[in-house]
Design a protein around this nucleic acid. Sequence first.
DNA 1: GGGCTTCCTTGATCCAGGTCAAAAAATGCC
DNA 2: GGCATTTTTTGACCTGGATCAAGGAAGCCC
Lengths: 251, 251
Amino acid sequence: MNTLGARPVVVAKSAATAHCIECGARGRSVCNAISERDLDRLAAVAVPKRIEKGQVFIEEGEAAVDFFNITTGTAKLYKMLPDGRQQITGFAGSGHFLGLAVSDTYAFTAEAIETVDLCRFSRPKLRALLDDFPLLEKRLLETACNELVAAQEQMLLLGRKTARERVASFLASRHTETVGCGKRSERVALPMTRAEIADYLGLTIETVSRTLTRFKSEGKISLPSRDEVEIIDPHWLLGVATGEDSHAAFV
Amino acid sequence: MNTLGARPVVVAKSAATAHCIECGARGRSVCNAISERDLDRLAAVAVPKRIEKGQVFIEEGEAAVDFFNITTGTAKLYKMLPDGRQQITGFAGSGHFLGLAVSDTYAFTAEAIETVDLCRFSRPKLRALLDDFPLLEKRLLETACNELVAAQEQMLLLGRKTARERVASFLASRHTETVGCGKRSERVALPMTRAEIADYLGLTIETVSRTLTRFKSEGKISLPSRDEVEIIDPHWLLGVATGEDSHAAFV
DNA sequence: GGGCTTCCTTGATCCAGGTCAAAAAATGCC
DNA sequence: GGCATTTTTTGACCTGGATCAAGGAAGCCC
């Protein structure tokens, strides 16, 4: 895997390249469209930056001058109504590319919910990179399509699912996402607060809390700490999440 | 604009080219990424097809073998839960490109709500076209981004807006979309039934009907026929749609 | 380790919008 | 044009989840 030994001269020519080569997020991000030997081109335009918890780094309505790629940590993406009602449209973790809007203003706000490390790309520099690496553009299109599919799934959740089904969907999707990361499969991290879960699921904090308590008392999950859930019965949870008729009958 | 006279030989070499050159949807679709002189390449892989009202031409979960581009008419795109609950994720009109999912199965169902004319592209042929016309890929990415922005807006609507705000948003967006088409601006066509509006807004048919009646009795709209709305007070409607505090106060 | 603050849970009550029911209007079909 | 069907409107009532209101449990900072 490590080809450093094979190409010492190229790597050495730019110390900045290191942060891309060593980047833990590369494998799961659009950056993997660029081969290791061209990585210095990428590294030259990617500006690493640390965002502290609670800090907003993209603001809805502001000029979209930069794109971002998250290396570590999690951010919430949301839209707001003038009276303060908030809808979180997604949580962006390691490898997530942000700012895809074509329009010249951002369509959502992004705020770190834990310390986030990311790479910043200026619009024109990314544009130049896209022209030189068509594969990168293909990967971006893929990413956008995947997000579109996820967005449609979320519309189904917000428009038609019950509170129980929403919370079950949330836990189930967190569960399946986590499995891939090599962690213990049944423990799911919840880096977000109950309020953030509520704003993501179109519910109130109280309903989220009550529903979790309910699942716990039904023996389907346990809540070892406030930011962790143990999924005891993943199959049951998935059934509820997908609105299986049988589960709706027994309350 | 018409370059037919300048290049009679090229155009004549394929009679099939005509349907792309004359296509009314070209201007607003991704096809405008391909210049008129290369249009025969596009025409060679685009298979025109007519879909009658009520006919399903993309089915959720089935192998994604084709892509479609709507020429005329409107289709509804939806996802369903096993017990029949339905969420319409969007209405696709002239120029809309469908089937963008990278995955090998469709993520939603598409059904014509009025007679639809479309062009069908097989996956491999479109892929080849994309490799030859990078601009087409750029346009697809743009399209996907725009849809993503619309999806986020819809999540805000479904997760956080009241029934009144949802119906107002729906009418307002229909209104602004219609303006561009050169029709009389205040008359908005509703090719979909109340049930379809309800499934799009995450409401019931009764709530949609009552809300429209309410707007009418408040003098903000009129309902000349069941598939048409006249927007009497667009500014007021937009205010309600965007959740302006003031409008929430006076009921 | 004690007081602060923030986050979470639980209980009581309320209401927007859903459900059920039926009439009215539009459309289609011989 | 008249009957059947579908769609829409309207009314009465109900309920899931929101709202309001306390408590309780973690963190966190001196």
